[in-house]
């Protein structure tokens, strides 16, 4: 359980981290919390010759809510997200997600940027960032670009981010009026990873119909995905328990579900439907409560 030898770098700026990454190329790996990378290095599955620790890059820390957009530095830890008043106000479903990642030690050290780039197909964040329409800022030698969450996750541990890019920020639109979201998962009892995790978000119009629906699902397929069939089934509909259940039933339609020693594809597909229904019901109830709360607040 001792990693192979490596050189350790600790740059203070994104620029110098990028320079190091370019210099060492294929042999280098960014350390962004290390809660997945370090165990893999100890097992010698991963043996990078250079480790570039971006833990002291000050510009990658911090969480701000400004002009209706929640901006989370990529090196914010799960624990910081869980207890951030700004996240609680603007994206409470992300608080709910961060709170159920791994264990306390993992949450104290692991970061949102590290987890998203690692893109474990059973990780928790991917479902929620899909449901909340998050956008990621990536910085590389060619400059800065943003990628919507829906285009980011390509396969197991495979994302749209290039090997020479660093994620710097996660941006999430602050939840508007009559909007509710929730994340629910069935954890693997041994690892705590999601056997299946579902994040749902519902925005209601004045008439109480679904104006905006997002369902993000992790753990089922080789990458987290948006259940577009379930989303479409709810568009413009009144979110009764029955319509939500009907939409949830197609949450894994057309998806190539994973089968392994932990669960069969059938089990995962079934679980996706069950959790999607519960998450949608919770999101709807929260959307309705948020409408009531804001209306009564504005009357005072």
């Amino acid at each position: 359980m001792i990693p192979a030898a490596f050189a350790y770098h600790r740059p203070r700026t994104v620029q110098s981290a990028l320079r190091l990454l370019q210099l060492h190329g294929h042999d280098a790996k960014i350390l962004a919390g290390g809660q997945s990378l370090l165990p893999m290095m100890k097992l010698r599955v991963a043996t990078p010759a250079h480790l570039i620790d971006i833990g002291r890059v000050a510009s990658l820390r911090g969480i701000r809510l400004r002009q209706g957009v929640l901006r989370i530095g990529a090196m914010a830890t799960h624990q910081e997200i869980e207890f951030s008043p700004a996240v609680r106000r603007a994206a409470p479903a992300l608080v709910e997600t961060a709170a159920v990642i791994g264990d306390l030690q993992v949450r104290n050290l692991g970061t949102i940027g590290g987890a998203l780039i690692h893109a474990d197909p059973v990780a928790d964040y991917p479902a929620t960032v899909l449901a909340l329409d998050a956008e990621f800022t990536l910085q590389g030698p060619a400059g800065v670009r943003t990628v919507p969450a829906a285009e980011f996750f390509l396969g197991p541990m495979t994302t749209d981010a290039g090997p020479d890019e660093i994620m710097t920020e996660v941006a999430i639109p602050a939840s508007p009026l009559r909007f509710g979201a929730a994340y629910l998962k069935m954890p693997n009892p041994a690892s705590g990873f999601a056997l299946v995790g579902v994040a749902a978000a519902i925005g209601l119009d004045q008439a109480g119909r679904c104006a905006h629906v997002r369902v993000g699902i992790t753990g089922v397929a080789s990458a987290a995905y948006r259940a577009s069939g379930a989303e479409a089934a709810l568009a413009g509909q009144e979110p009764t328990d029955e319509t939500l259940a009907r939409a949830a039933a197609v949450a894994a339609d057309g998806v190539d579900a994973n089968s392994d020693i932990h669960a069969s594809a059938e089990y995962r597909t079934h679980l996706a439907g069950v959790l999607a229904r519960r998450a949608l019901v919770l999101a709807r109830d929260r959307a309705m409560a948020s409408g009531r709360r804001r209306r009564s607040a504005s009357r005072v």
Binding site: M40, L43, R44, V45, P121, V122, L154, G155, P156, M157, T158, A221, S222, A223, D256, N258, S259, D260, I261, H262
Partner: peptide, 20 residues
């Protein structure tokens, strides 16, 4: 090897993705 002991839950997905 470690590919199996650590990667078994990822392997099917990786194979599918590479085939794609």
């Amino acid at each position: 090897g470690v590919l199996m002991s650590v990667g078994h839950r990822l392997f099917g997905g990786v194979a599918k993705q590479l085939a794609g």
